[in-house]
């Protein structure tokens, strides 16, 4: 394809650790052929060549934490055909969204000698809270094969083939022994979207939920069960729900419920079974 005919791909970063965009550089075997098929016109992590828009596909990493970011995002949206938000920060606030449940000025005072120089929003929120997003790719970080699938799909005008089912589906297909049932570990796999290949249970450890919520996530029933039968405390429940994807609504609702239970001192966790 002539250089000018190829779809133009741009990669942008907001509040994030760079891990997701590095997944693209991590595609060692595939990167050259991707670069032939797409014109990578803006990817500061990879090249000093930074062209202006418009872009056919924009990959957006990171969450929105400053007023300036908000403006920059609006410009990117205007310049982009398809806008794909990638990773837990961009789709559900990321680790830094722990500020959403605390006083951000407290944090600033603890971390910085001169907090008065900071200009920051009270919250860390997903890209889709501000602009229209064409596709949200989950993961902390995203899976590089899923990222390739999404990029290739948008480049050829088809829908990405990404399952929205639970991690448990991959866990069973991989032949893992369920760590929740066989060891009583706390595992968020049943409410977490597949994509990682059930990595943690394959190493005998419960899923932390880094791939975000699956469709129809039954967060309340899982947490009730873990609390009633597997010794999960309220603070463990809250911490696990507010770790990687704190702004995801189904997690927020149950985390808030935990706050209320804590205040009322009630020992919740009914309706479960023996086990």
């Amino acid at each position: 394809m002539a250089r000018s005919d190829r779809p133009r791909l741009a990669v942008f970063k907001f509040a994030s650790c760079d891990g997701c965009q590095l997944s693209l550089l991590d595609c060692e075997d595939e990167l050259l052929s991707i670069a032939e098929r797409l014109d990578i016109v803006h990817f500061p992590e990879a090249s000093r060549r930074m062209l202006t828009g418009p872009y056919d596909i924009a990959l957006v990493e990171g969450s929105i934490t400053t007023a300036h970011d908000r403006e920059r995002l609006t410009e990117i949206r205007e310049q982009s055909g398809f806008l794909v938000s990638i990773g837990a920060c961009a789709t559900a606030g990321g680790l830094q969204a722990m500020r959403n449940f605390a006083d951000v000025s407290d944090y600033a005072r603890t971390v910085y000698p001169h907090p008065e120089y900071l200009s920051t929003l009270e919250t860390s929120t997903p890209i889709a809270d501000y602009v229209a997003v064409d596709y949200e790719l989950h993961g902390c970080p995203v899976d590089k094969y899923q990222l390739l699938e999404v990029v290739l799909a948008f480049a050829s005008g088809r829908r990405p083939q990404i399952a929205r089912e639970s991690v448990c589906m991959e866990c069973k297909a991989r032949g893992n022994v369920c760590v929740l049932v066989a060891q009583g570990q706390h595992c968020l796999g049943p409410i977490t979207q597949a994509g990682c290949g059930a990595l943690c249970p394959a190493y005998s450890r419960g899923c932390y939920g880094c791939f975000g919520v699956k469709e129809q996530a039954q967060v309340g029933p899982l947490i009730d069960h873990l609390r009633a039968h597997h010794g999960m405390t309220l603070s463990q429940a809250r911490r696990s729900l507010r770790a990687y994807n704190p702004a995801a609504e189904p997690l927020q609702i149950i985390a808030l419920q935990c706050d209320k239970d804590d205040v009322s001192g009630s020992k919740k966790g009914s309706g479960g079974h023996d086990g």
Partner: peptide, 13 residues
């Protein structure tokens, strides 16, 4: 439906 997680484990095993 208030307890089921729609995780699919039952069908996979």
């Amino acid at each position: 439906a208030e307890r089921c997680l729609a995780c699919g484990n039952c069908t996979q095993v």
